[in-house]
Design a protein around this nucleic acid. Structure first.
Ligand SMILES: [Mn+2]
Ligand SMILES: [Mn+2]
Ligand SMILES: [Zn+2]
Ligand SMILES: [Zn+2]
Lengths: 141, 141
DNA sequence: ATAATAATTGAAAATGATTTTCATTAAGGA
DNA sequence: TCCTTAATGAAAATCATTTTCAATTATTAT
C-alpha cells in the first residue's frame, strides 16, 4: 500500500473536514478496493464496519473524496456511478470485463496523435480520456 | 451528409419497426446534430416538429437507434446521458469543452501501447475507449 | 380501399437514484 | 470540559428513467 487510508483521513482533516466514524468506514471501504464501487455498494460494505451509517453520508463522503482527488469516477458501458482510488499523476484505467478488477497503467504517448488531430481539425487539444478493457490474468487462461 | 436521415428510418423499418411521426421527429433531431443531445434536449427540439410527442417516446426511440448502432452515448465529465450519431468504423470522439461540438477522428494506433500493457499486466486487452477534449477552431483563436 | 392485427403512442403511475431539509449529535479547538 | 459548528441519519423532495395501460395508428391481408 503506497498511500495508507490514514492519509485520506489526514487529507480530509487538513481541508477542514472532521474525522468521524462514518467517514472512517467509507474511507476504509473505498481505499484499497480493486473494484470500482457504487455508492450503494460502498454503503453495504461500510455499514458492516459502522452499523449506524446512512446512505446519504456515503454520497456526501464520496463527493468530498472526489473533490480532493482521492477517488475518481469510473465510466463503464453499463454505468458511470462507480468510484475507485484515484491514480497518481497521469494514469489510465484498465478494466477486466469479467470480474471488474481495475488496474492503472501509464506511459501512453499520444503526442503524435493529438498533434495530428489538432492539425487536421483545428482543435486545440487539452486533455484525453483513455481506457482499456479486457480480461485479467485470472479471467482468461 | 453521408447518411441521409431517411436511411435511419429505413433501417428502423428493415428491422421491423414502424415509421411514425414521433420517430421522424426524433430521428430528424438527432441525425445531423453536431452536439450530443440528452433525451430531454431531444424532446424539446423534436416537439417543435411534432407537437404531440411524448418524452417517453424519445427514450424509446433513442433506445432503438442505439440498438441499431445509429447513435452512441457520449460520456462527458458532467454527464453520460447524451447521444450523437454514431461514427462509422473505428472512430473516436473529439469534444469542444467550450461549445460542446463533437467531431470524430480515426487513425489512432494503440497497438504498441496495448501490447506493452498486456505484457506488463497479463491482461488480454479487448477494446479501448479514447476521447479527446479541447477547444474547436471557433472557440480558441 | 377496407378491415384486421399488432406495434406504437402519450399520460399517468411507479421506480430508483440522488439531493435537500432539518432536528439531533458529536468533533475538535479554546 | 465547554462551545461552536460541522456532520449525521431519517424523512421528504426532486429528478431521471421505466412500466403500465387504454387509445391510436402503421402495416398487412383481404
Ligand atoms: Mn494519457
Ligand atoms: Mn482506437
Ligand atoms: Zn478479471
Ligand atoms: Zn467550440
Amino acid at each position: 500500500m503506497i498511500t495508507p487510508s490514514e492519509t485520506w483521513l489526514e487529507q480530509l482533516h487538513d481541508n477542514g473536514y472532521r474525522i468521524t466514524a462514518a467517514r472512517r468506514a467509507v474511507v476504509d471501504t473505498v481505499f484499497g478496493s480493486t473494484h470500482a464501487l457504487t455508492p450503494s455498494e460502498v454503503f453495504d460494505t461500510a455499514r458492516k464496519k459502522y452499523r449506524a451509517l446512512g446512505l446519504v453520508t456515503v454520497y456526501r463522503t464520496l463527493e468530498k473524496l472526489e473533490e480532493l482527488h482521492l477517488i475518481q469516477r469510473v465510466h463503464q458501458p453499463l454505468g458511470c456511478q462507480a468510484f475507485i482510488s484515484a491514480g497518481h499523476g497521469h494514469q489510465h484505467l484498465l478494466l477486466c470485463q469479467q470480474c471488474g478488477q481495475v488496474e492503472f497503467f501509464e506511459g501512453d504517448d499520444l503526442d503524435a496523435l493529438t498533434k495530428s488531430i489538432a492539425r487536421k481539425t483545428g482543435y486545440q487539444i487539452q486533455e484525453h480520456w483513455l481506457q482499456l478493457f479486457g480480461l485479467c490474468a485470472n479471467c482468461h487462461s
